[in-house]
Simulated scan of single mutants.
Amino acid sequence: MKLFAAGLLLSTSVVALSGCTATSSSGPTGRAVEERATVKVTNASSKRSVGIDYALVDINSSLLAYASETTTEAGLGSLGSSRSGAPSLPLGAGDIIQVAIFESQAGGLFIPADAGSRPGNYVTLPEQTIARDGTISVPYAGRIRAAGRQVEEVQAEVEDLLSSKAIEPQVVITKVSSKSAQVAVLGDVNEPTKVQLTDAGERVLDAVSEAGGLKTPNAETYVTVQRRGRTARVRFDKLLANPSENIYVAPGDTIIAERERRTFLAFGAAGTNGRFDFEEENLTLGEGLGKAGGLLDSRANPAQVLLYRQAPRKLLVSLGVDVSKFKGDDIPVVFRADLRDPAALFAVQKFPMQDKDVIYISNSDSVEIIKFLNLVNSISSTASGVSSDVVSTRDSIKDL
């Protein structure tokens, strides 16, 4: 027994003496950082918990049936149906119009009896801009409110006002330019501009086309439509694929194209750790693992491939998860894939990833044993730095 104790003490001493190579560090230890802090705001009272509750959900065939629900968006359809028809374009302040007045015969108010040969019994008034107060001026009819009214309404009122002065007057009002019926297209387009709307009706893609199209990748660009205090947006590739999102634009709308890089993070026992771009329109968990270099054979635990995400509450409810302990519409969820199961490889190829997902691959339990054995086997003969490493070893043991 004494011989065993002496051998254990000798082994411990040798490990401590070899600290300069076995326990080398590229920076200060966690304990040193904590001890030298002027002010500490820690989670010691809650057993070092961050304080964020989350749900753990295994990726299986049942989850795949609801996977599409994790990527739903309200889209532009919330502003109006694409089948409701083009919006009407009433006259507005700033519009330039031209008024033509016809009479049934010469000798009336506008066509004199001695007019001679002329192409028709009408007179064309000079172009005029609808004033800020929304009115126009017509000789012998006076000031007439035009803004906010359809062309036909204004024509009828002018005819009625001239009926007692002209011979069976007929009035035609033509829009020369419509400053009040414009849509601004801004952001990541080639030629930001204002698009003048026509009675034919322009849709979102028409307006983007008038602005020269996008200068950013479709899958990374969101189109936002602002309308009378309301806002809706959709990713451009979904706008292209779903006609119901390509709604009619209305006067005063603002369309903004913005690029948002879609990325995910990979940590742990992956081939490469870091941030990765989606690059494709759709990316699955299996493809994300491939981008990150897959699992390291020497470290990874294939049964603990984890994906961190904020998932909608309704998804968890549909899966039968008790969400009574969570607040809000988005719930932190860790999705787990067990790649020891051959069928799981099919599942990860169908499970869609989302922007800002985090993939974490846990170490195998055997890795910790290997770390300890490497520590023992890396004993060297040098004794420099022994005192500091003994302290570090002692503090590390306290933290266990």
Rank of each mutant, 00 (worst) to 15 (best):
F4V: 14
A5Q: 14
G7Q: 06
G7H: 10
G7S: 09
L8I: 12
L9A: 12
T12L: 11
V15N: 04
G19W: 01
C20W: 12
S26Y: 03
S26R: 11
A32N: 07
V33D: 08
V33Y: 07
E34C: 08
V41R: 15
T42R: 15
T42N: 14
N43T: 14
V50Q: 14
D53N: 10
A55I: 12
S62W: 02
A65V: 02
A65Q: 01
S68M: 03
T71F: 11
T71V: 03
A74C: 08
G75F: 03
L79Q: 01
S81L: 06
S82L: 08
R83L: 06
G85I: 07
P87C: 07
P90Y: 10
I96C: 01
Q98I: 04
E103R: 02
S104H: 04
F110M: 04
I111Y: 00
P112W: 03
A113Y: 08
D114L: 05
S117W: 15
R118I: 13
P119C: 09
N121T: 13
Y122I: 02
P126V: 10
E127G: 05
E127D: 06
I130L: 01
D133K: 00
G134L: 07
G134Y: 06
I136G: 06
V138R: 00
G142L: 04
R143M: 12
R145W: 11
R145E: 15
A146C: 09
A147L: 07
R149W: 06
Q150K: 05
V154E: 02
E157I: 06
D160G: 08
D160P: 11
L162Q: 06
K165F: 12
A166S: 11
I173K: 00
T174A: 09
S177Q: 12
A181M: 05
A184W: 01
V185P: 04
Q196L: 07
L205V: 04
A211I: 01
K215S: 14
N218V: 08
V223K: 03
T224I: 06
R228M: 03
T231Y: 11
F236L: 14
K238H: 00
L240H: 06
N242C: 00
N242L: 10
S244C: 06
N246Q: 00
I247R: 00
D253F: 05
A257G: 02
T263C: 02
L265T: 15
A266L: 02
A266N: 05
A266R: 06
G268R: 02
G271D: 02
G271A: 11
G271N: 07
R275G: 05
E280R: 09
E280S: 14
E281C: 00
L283F: 01
A292C: 05
L296G: 01
R299E: 11
P302T: 00
P302R: 08
V305S: 08
L307H: 04
L307P: 05
Q310V: 07
A311F: 00
V317C: 10
S318H: 01
V321D: 05
G328A: 14
A337E: 02
L345H: 15
Q349E: 13
K350T: 03
D355S: 07
K356H: 02
K356E: 15
D357V: 01
Y360N: 04
Y360A: 13
I361T: 13
S362P: 08
V367A: 10
E368P: 02
I369N: 15
F372H: 15
N374F: 01
N377I: 10
I379T: 11
T382E: 10
T382Y: 11
A383Q: 15
A383H: 04
G385Y: 15
V386A: 14
S388H: 15
D389I: 10
T393H: 08
S396C: 14
I397E: 05
